[in-house]
Simulated scan of single mutants.
Amino acid sequence: MPFRRKLLEQTQRDIKRLKNKGHKPTTLLGIFLYGGTLGFLFVVPIVGGAYLGLWLDELIAGYSEHWTLNLILLGIAVGGYNVFRFLRDKT
C-alpha cells in the first residue's frame, strides 16, 4: 500500500504543476522572442522570393519585374501561412 500512496501523491503533485504551468507570468524576453519568431517566419519567405525573382528576372533579356513581383506576393502568402500554422500549433 505505500506504493499506492506514493503514486497518488506524485500524481496530485503533477496535476498541480500542470494547472499552475499556464498561470506563470510572461517575461519581456519571452514576448520579444515570440514576436521575433513570428517576424522571422513572415519575412524570410518574402525576402527569399524577392531575391529568387530578381535572379530569374535578370536571366530574361530586357527589363522585367514579373518574377520578382509574383514571388514577393507568393512570399507574403507563404509567410502568412507560416504565422497562421505557428499560432495554431501554440494554442
Rank of each mutant, 00 (worst) to 15 (best):
V43N: 05
L73Y: 11
T26E: 02
Q12V: 03
N82L: 07
R88N: 03
V83D: 00
L29H: 08
G62P: 03
G80K: 07
R85F: 14
I31Q: 13
L69Q: 08
R4V: 15
Y34R: 14
E58M: 13
E9T: 06
V78L: 15
L56W: 04
L8N: 07
L87I: 15
L29N: 15
F86L: 08
W67A: 04
G48L: 06
L73T: 04
V83T: 01
L71S: 02
H66E: 14
G30W: 02
T68P: 01
G22P: 01
V44W: 05
D57F: 06
Y81G: 05
K16H: 04
K16G: 03
D14Q: 14
L71Q: 02
L38A: 09
N82S: 12
I60W: 09
G48N: 01
E65N: 13
L56E: 00
H23Q: 15
T11L: 14
L69N: 10
K24V: 09
G36D: 01
F3Q: 10
G53D: 00
L38C: 08
W67M: 04
T37I: 07
K90S: 11
T26D: 01
V44P: 03
K6Y: 04
T68S: 10
A77I: 12
N20L: 10
L71K: 01
T27M: 01
F3K: 13
P25D: 02
P45A: 04
N20A: 15
F86P: 00
E65R: 08
K19R: 15
F84S: 06
W67H: 14
F32P: 03
T91M: 11
L54F: 12
R13H: 08
Y81E: 12
K6N: 10
N82I: 06
K16L: 12
V47L: 13
Y63F: 14
A61P: 09
R17E: 13
L8A: 10
R5E: 04
I15V: 13
K90H: 03
R13A: 13
L73G: 08
W55T: 13
E9V: 07
I60C: 05
L28C: 04
T37W: 07
K21F: 11
L38H: 03
L29K: 14
V47F: 09
G53Q: 01
G62Y: 04
L41M: 10
K6M: 11
G80I: 03
K21Q: 07
T11N: 01
E65W: 09
G79W: 02
F84W: 13
I72A: 03
L52D: 01
L69A: 14
F84P: 00
F84R: 01
L33M: 15
P2W: 11
A77D: 02
G30E: 11
V83G: 05
L33V: 11
G79R: 02
I60N: 12
K24A: 10
I31M: 10
T68Q: 03
N70M: 12
